[in-house]
């Protein structure tokens, strides 16, 4: 494992920690899209099915279990915690699951490396992860006064994707058989979705103002 991959994973892990910190410390999930969180849970469950039949490393297994467990925990807070659930912007979080899940499923059935149940689900998870941030980005556009923890959460997620791309470039030149065009294209699409966000994020940071995305 190279340093870029590790930094990407740590950024991903940190993003989850920031989100859990926000929810637990402020007892609020204001500005957080439950749709995005549930899509991520679906991404993790479909991708990490291989926990049951393929072992890569202890590091990988621990991270997979951690991502599934934290995703479930976040959803439980947002849906069932008496205090937290009252802060959920339900009326604003209107993105339809079907618009994202259905095309990803069709694409995974058509474009995959092997037509097996687990491989199609894995491919589906790659496509779905690429677009799962969309409900969160839409919600942030609608929300005035995005708080710092929410902004940092999304920034860390974007950093994770960017670092994975650097990791792929590194692996492309150091591992002769490393060719994963399907993952790369999805990853580039996913990272591109953050471009707009990062433009306004750095601008707000430079001017020391609150992040606000133009509608």
């Amino acid at each position: 494992m190279n340093l870029f991959r590790l930094a990407g994973d740590m950024s991903h892990l940190l993003s989850v920690c920031v989100l859990l910190l926000k929810i637990r410390a402020t007892k609020s999930c204001r500005g957080i899209s439950l749709k995005t969180q549930e899509l991520y849970a679906l991404v993790f469950v479909t991708r990490y099915l291989d926990l049951f039949y393929s072992y890569i490393s202890l590091y990988n297994s621990i991270m997979k279990v951690t991502f599934i467990a934290t995703a479930v925990s976040i959803i439980r807070y947002m849906r069932f915690d008496k205090v937290v659930k009252q802060t959920y912007d339900k009326e604003q979080d209107t993105f339809r699951y079907a618009f994202l899940v259905a095309p990803c499923l069709v694409l995974a059935l058509v474009l995959n490396h092997r037509f097996t149940f687990t491989e199609v689900l894995w491919t589906f998870s790659i496509y779905l992860e690429a677009v799962a941030i969309l409900p969160q980005l839409v919600l942030m556009q609608r929300t005035q006064n995005i708080d710092n923890l929410t902004a940092n959460y999304v920034a860390l997620l974007g950093a994770y994707r960017g670092l994975y791309i650097v990791n792929w470039i590194y692996r492309y030149f150091t591992e002769p058989h490393y060719r994963q065009w399907l993952v790369w294209i999805s990853g580039v699409v996913q990272t591109a979705l953050y471009a707009d966000f990062f433009y306004f994020y750095t601008k707000a940071w430079k001017h020391n103002t609150r992040l606000q995305l133009p509608a």
């Binding site: 991959r5 994973d9 991903h12 991708r47 291989d50 393929s54 890569i56 990988n60 991270m63 997979k64 991502f67 490396h113 092997r114 491989e119 894995w122 994975y164 990791n167 058989h177 060719r179 994963q180 993952v183």
Partner: peptide
């Protein structure tokens, strides 16, 4: 490709 894809990333 013919090579089995190894999913070693997260």
């Amino acid at each position: 490709g013919g090579k089995k894809e190894e999913h070693d990333e997260l």
